[in-house]
């Protein structure tokens, strides 16, 4: 079942220097000087026992971005090719059989869509990444519509690992975070089950240590 993809189990960060114009390079800098935002609560002496030496904003160096498994890309591309293949046949055959093969040419639209989708899925896959920081989890994704989500560990109400039949076939699992806000939309698809479970346990543990209610 667990057919590992070419990647290592922890999923190396995707190649950042790829010649994709939209590959996200603007990593949020935790040390940014806040602009006009007065940082009063953060500058109070708040070093509680739960924080220990890791209090304060994390250093950029320790913020380690991780990508998602390449198997996710393979899975999505396989699904894309299957759907487009079926659509091509479903369009071409009813046209070609009664009217002649030339009439089947419009069905070539689907392979064109598939080619574009192939490329778009690749860019989308490269855009997915996450980083565990000292106090929160960062998830960044999207090529055209980019989204970066920050969830403080103390706000996690529930961490969920799911894996559908297709995902299991590719040895993948999906991590979903829930906070008290239903609008929080934080999920990492395409993790190796072991990594997903490690992350779940770590997040749960950190969440307990820093727990805060509503």
């Amino acid at each position: 079942m667990q057919e590992q993809a070419q990647h290592g189990p922890t999923g190396e960060p995707p190649e950042q220097g790829a010649p994709v114009p939209d590959a996200p390079e603007d990593v949020p800098r935790p040390t940014a000087t806040g602009g006009a935002a007065p940082d009063a609560p953060a500058s109070r002496p708040t070093a509680g026992p739960a924080d220990g030496p890791t209090n304060g904003p994390s250093e950029p160096g320790e913020q380690e971005w991780r990508g998602v498994e390449r198997a996710l890309l393979s899975m999505r591309r396989t699904v894309l090719l299957t759907v487009m293949g079926v659509l091509t046949l479903a369009t071409a055959l009813p046209l070609a059989l009664p009217l002649g093969p030339v009439w089947a040419l419009p069905a070539l639209l689907w392979p064109a869509v598939a080619a574009w989708g192939w490329y778009a899925l690749g860019r989308n896959w490269r855009s997915w990444r996450y980083a565990e920081r000292a106090d929160d989890l960062l998830i960044s994704r999207g090529v055209l519509w980019r989204e970066t989500t920050v969830v403080p560990y103390g706000r996690m109400q529930l961490v969920e690992v799911t894996s559908g039949p297709l995902e299991r076939r590719y040895g993948l699992a999906r991590l979903q975070l829930h906070t008290a806000a239903a609008t929080t939309d934080a999920a990492v698809p395409g993790l190796v089950p072991a990594e997903a479970e490690r992350l779940r346990d770590r997040l749960t543990e950190l969440g307990e240590a820093r727990s805060a209610g509503l």
């Binding site: 603007d26 949020p28 800098r29 935790p30 940014a32 000087t33 806040g34 602009g35 935002a37 940082d39 609560p41 953060a42 109070r44 708040t46 509680g48 904003p57 106090d135 929160d136 970066t148 920050v150 403080p152 103390g154 706000r155 820093r210 805060a212 209610g213």
Partner: peptide
């Protein structure tokens, strides 16, 4: 502004974390 937004996100996560300590008990 895009750069400001990034700074705001990071700073807000930090404020959200520390702001809780001064909150009243349930």
């Amino acid at each position: 502004d895009a750069e400001e937004a990034e700074a705001v996100v990071v700073a807000q996560a930090e404020r959200s974390r520390t702001g809780r300590r001064t909150a009243r008990p349930e």
